[in-house]
Simulated assay, not measured.
Amino acid sequence: MIRPFDDPAVAAAFDAFPPAPRETALQLRDLIFSVAWDAPQVGQIEETLKWGQPSYLTSETQSGSTLRIGMPKQGGCALYAHCATDIISTYAATFPGSDRIEGNRAVIFQQADDIVPDRLRLLIYHGLTYHLNR
């Protein structure tokens, strides 16, 4: 289901993606909202821009760390987490060799078909509940 944008600046950020990365970015966005919906402890997700990238915050509950969607320099689309967390490294250790990982900060997808929703839902859940487990 396509969720409407509340913030025109966020909608414009998605519109600025080239077509293939935009498809991937929109799929990541849908997954973030889906995971949040299924996890009541996360509360309402705030969708905003940080560093010009669509960003997802748990402002209501403070349960998680910010997740961002952006285009890495090498192309494609990426889901970013704060590099001082173990969100990406935990995901990479759980699914070694399954995705293209950029250090401790991102999972990179060349195209939407590279996303494995059931696997990625675990990363997103970890991000959105990060502070609940500390």
Rank of each mutant, 00 (worst) to 15 (best):
R68H: 08
T66P: 04
V10N: 00
Q44F: 01
T24A: 00
G76R: 02
C83T: 15
D113I: 05
I108W: 08
Y56K: 10
S65C: 13
P96C: 04
A12M: 04
R121L: 09
I108A: 11
Q110A: 15
L128I: 01
Q111K: 10
K73M: 08
Q27G: 06
R105G: 12
T24D: 06
L26G: 01
L31C: 04
F17M: 06
Y91S: 07
Q62H: 15
I87V: 15
G75F: 01
V35C: 09
G75H: 06
P21M: 05
G52F: 13
A106E: 05
G103Q: 00
H82C: 00
A106M: 14
Q41D: 08
L123S: 01
P117M: 09
V35D: 03
Y125R: 12
T90S: 06
G103D: 01
L26Y: 04
Q44H: 06
I124W: 03
A92I: 07
L122Y: 11
F95N: 05
I124Q: 08
Q111C: 13
Q111N: 14
Q53N: 08
P117Q: 00
M71C: 09
H126S: 09
R134T: 06
I115P: 05
D113V: 10
F14T: 12
S65H: 05
P4E: 12
L122E: 05
T90N: 10
D30T: 13
L132R: 07
H126N: 12
R68G: 12
I87F: 14
I87M: 03
S65E: 01
C83K: 11
A84P: 07
N104Q: 01
R100H: 08
I2W: 02
G127F: 08
I45T: 01
E23S: 10
Y125F: 12
L49H: 14
D114Q: 01
A36I: 14
I115T: 01
L120K: 02
H82Y: 13
I115N: 04
S98C: 02
I2F: 00
N133C: 04
A78R: 14
T129Q: 00
I108C: 10
R105F: 11
C77V: 15
F5Q: 10
Y56H: 12
A84T: 15
K50Q: 15
D118V: 15
C83I: 14
G97Q: 08
L128C: 02
D7Y: 13
F17W: 09
F95S: 10
D113F: 07
R22F: 09
F14D: 09
I69Q: 03
D99T: 09
G127K: 04
L128P: 06
P54Q: 04
L79V: 11
I115S: 02
T24S: 03
